[in-house]
């Protein structure tokens, strides 16, 4: 019996099963029995001072921690003022080039072929015709100089230009009442944001950095840019976009990072 049965967050997938995450390591985890939770919770020293007793991956504890993360999603959605604009900065503050970051190193970046690249559309969108790079780059563009903040704690100020997401969603006939906008990327990365953030005026499909087209290590030909989210919420090398009510998750979120991750 679980120690605590959490109320399901609207941002968590249906049928989420903590045990399913464990997969082939079930036996290993089984050794860390429930008494271990109590022992760990009571004995503070064991909790942090002896990594051998670290109970972080105990399945019941994981379900509690992830339920609290779901609660944090709701609190953050409530805290986010849709009219609040992120602070903007000047040209002199801009880092050149932007900082590279991915789940692999810069020498492993796979080049995207501009000619064959398309933005595929899926889900609750009326006009799902794919977009070529040239068609997207020809749309009206906006520029912002905003702070990029990584979940790890580093930050830089970047100058991003691109297609504001809201008018683009309107243009393709997306259901603006849907809950999520999900993205899939050329490198296998994937992610999703809430509709409120997707409709925020500072959320853009970035095509340019500091006046130049976004180059390959930084997400060619388009990446999501929104100063309202941590960096990992802004996928690069986007190849498809989906509007949906089914929680799409994310590459890091599925490993426990907080889904909303608004700043």
């Amino acid at each position: 019996m679980p120690l605590y049965t959490p109320k399901r967050s609207p941002h968590r997938p249906e049928g989420f099963d903590g045990k399913a995450l464990i997969g082939p390591h079930r036996d290993l985890l089984h050794d860390i029995n429930r008494r271990g939770v109590l022992r760990g919770a009571v004995s503070l020293g064991a909790l942090t001072l002896l990594s051998g007793c670290d109970i972080s991956n105990e399945p019941h504890l994981q379900s509690v921690l992830r339920a609290i993360s779901g609660w944090n999603d709701r609190v953050q959605a409530w805290l986010q003022n849709p009219n609040k604009l992120a602070p903007t900065y000047t040209d002199a503050d801009v880092a050149r080039p932007p900082r590279f970051n991915a789940f692999y190193t810069i020498d492993q970046v796979k080049p995207v072929d501009a000619a064959s690249w398309k933005l595929e559309l899926a889900g609750q969108i009326a006009d799902k015709a794919p977009w070529t790079k040239d068609a997207l780059y020809a749309l009206p563009s906006e520029t912002q100089i905003t702070r990029h903040i990584c979940v790890e704690g580093w930050d830089y100020i970047g100058k991003w230009s691109g297609v504001p997401l809201r008018p683009f969603l309107e243009r393709i006939g997306a259901d603006l009442k849907a809950r999520y906008v999900g993205f899939r990327c050329f490198d296998g990365y994937y992610g999703s944001i809430d509709m409120a953030t997707a409709l925020h005026p500072q959320t853009i499909l970035a095509t340019h950095y500091d006046g130049q087209p976004v180059e390959n290590p930084y997400g060619f030909p388009i990446r999501l840019k929104t100063p309202l989210k941590l960096g990992f919420k802004q996928p690069k090398w986007i190849t498809s976009m989906e509007v949906t009510n089914v929680y799409p998750g994310g590459y890091w979120e599925d490993g426990g990072y907080n889904w909303f991750s608004g700043v």
Partner: peptide
């Protein structure tokens, strides 16, 4: 389990 060595778990702990 998580594709990282415990950073995600540390975030879960911290924000709980």
């Amino acid at each position: 389990l998580n594709k990282d060595t415990g950073f995600g778990n540390a975030l879960l702990w911290h924000f709980a």
